[in-house]
Design a protein around this nucleic acid. Structure first.
Lengths: 292, 292
DNA sequence: TTATAATAATCGAAAATTTCGATCGTATCG
DNA sequence: CGATACGATCGAAATTTTCGATTATTATAA
């Protein structure tokens, strides 16, 4: 049983004429005969009687007709749904770093939702270390993170932009007056840091430790927002990528200390290399690339 | 889109493994690949992602899956229905003469309904003259009539049994005492006849007329039962096939007059030659043949 | 890192099927 | 009875499907 045969059967039921049906469907008349015979053979009944010059549906034919119509309707629905889905319903699961969620994604998501109103966007907060695993498990469609460079044979990178990591203080902080700072200047300073697994903290802490610089952690928080507020209040220093503090720098609420570093942090955008980029996903990726 | 492809897609969605799916469905692995590619091409999406070693349904694949399952279920329903229908639901439209409806069909119908309880039997009263037309129009499936011989190139006859046409009277009737009657003995007799289009009446009346025998029609009725009752009451003579008066002859309520005739009347059973004989219809025809 | 095993994609050839055009058979209509 | 309309049938051509072999990729073991 085949949709082609059912289609032919339905049209033939309407026309009750093989030749016209052949014309309508673009087949030779003999092909219509053959298709109906196939169908009859498979269903093991006669579907049509040719009595005299006219064609009649048999009992079985009458039985089949509504089902055949339903079948074709269902096939048509499938085509519609899947075609529409390219344009309408669909879901993209984005795994993103917290900073990017807060400082970059809102504008991107807003813009994407305007251009693709029917796409469901799911946001999963992930850390840099999970990127490969989650893309490989297909639990996220795309990863948008800030952190250490990631290179992996089965992961495609669409974007890699160096991010400055800043050591920040309140504008009134004593260290702020110096022309240039060395790592040693941070000795015994109170720091407000993100959680241990965070790449910027890791990077900076590694720097301090490798030079044997003692330091205090006054606040440890997953919330960048909390850290900034505390720093503004003068509680200590914090280490954040510049993109997370643009606003505060502009408003002069925070000051970047003149500490030259060589930290390798990147905003990156990844998919699994085998991932099929649906038109929507491709659009989303393009939008991010343009927005950065 | 094709049921075969959908089936493959569904099994593959379950297995998430091409090789196993190929084994399960009895194809080569490459055929599974090909079928899925066909489906993807036709629906213009990717249905499966192969990420690393594992196979995942894409968004589109997830969308398709329930529809594909529904489709297969529907196909399965069709097969079931049409197969069951051979045995269960079905309808046979029988066109039959009144006499046969009254004197033969009841026993046949009862027996058939016992052996084929789910077949809907429709009975249409028809006259001999309509047999060809109605079979040709496919308004009846089978014709079971008593009357003149019918031979027609497009009509198949399954049964042709000579029927005796009797001229009957009440046992007390004066003509009954004669040894043998000639047509002339019926001159001026009052007759109780069936309606004009009826073959027995036609046949007998023709006989009288061709010999220029005058006669009266005392009662003209479509009801054989009424005619018999009136004849029993001594109102006149009637002309009926023997099968219609078995009971009354046995009970000595009516007497067959000793009139030798050469009327060619037959109980016959027909289908259109092009008619497909469903198993049920074939059973019905067999039953009639055995019952006569 | 390299070898190995697992697995799907690809490709060309073989097999199966579908389609077509021509012809035949049958029923209807003038 | 002949002409016409229409589906069935048949063999050849065209197309599609399937297969087996090979290749490519990735995960895993050594």
């Amino acid at each position: 049983m085949d949709l082609k045969q059912l289609k032919t059967f339905v049209v033939l039921s309407k026309n009750k004429n093989y030749t016209r049906t052949a014309d309508e469907l673009g087949y030779a008349q003999s092909s219509i005969s053959a298709q109906i015979q196939q169908l009859e053979q498979e269903l093991n009944t006669k579907l049509l009687d040719r009595i005299g010059k006219k064609v009649f549906l048999t009992e079985s034919g009458e039985q089949l007709l509504p089902y055949a119509i339903e079948m074709l309707a269902l096939a048509s629905t499938i085509r519609d749904k899947l075609d529409n889905d390219h344009l309408s319903r669909s879901r993209i699961v984005v795994g993103a770093s917290e900073s990017l969620c807060v400082f970059k994604l809102p504008a991107i998501v807003e813009s994407f939702r305007r251009s693709h109103p029917n796409i469901e966007l799911h946001l999963a907060l992930i850390e840099n270390a999970q990127v490969v695993e989650q893309l490989t498990n297909n639990t996220i469609d795309v990863a948008f993170t800030i952190g250490n460079s990631i290179e992996h044979p089965t992961i495609t990178s669409f974007l890699k932009k160096r991010e400055e990591l800043l050591v920040l203080s309140a504008p009134t902080h004593p260290l702020q007056s110096k022309k240039a700072l060395a790592i040693t200047d941070f000795a015994n300073q109170p720091f407000l840091l993100t959680s241990t697994s965070c790449n910027y903290r890791e990077t900076f802490e590694c720097d301090l430790k490798s030079h044997g610089i003692p330091y205090q952690v006054t606040l440890e928080s997953g919330s960048v927002q909390a850290i900034k507020k505390m720093t503004i209040s003068g509680l200590g220093l914090c280490v954040l990528p510049s993109l997370a503090v643009q606003e505060e720098l502009n408003a002069n609420l925070l000051t970047a200390l003149p500490y030259k570093n060589d930290y390798k942090l990147y905003t990156q955008l990844f998919c699994h290399a085998s991932k099929w980029l649906s038109p929507n996903l491709a659009d989303f990726i393009d939008l991010i690339i343009k927005s950065i």
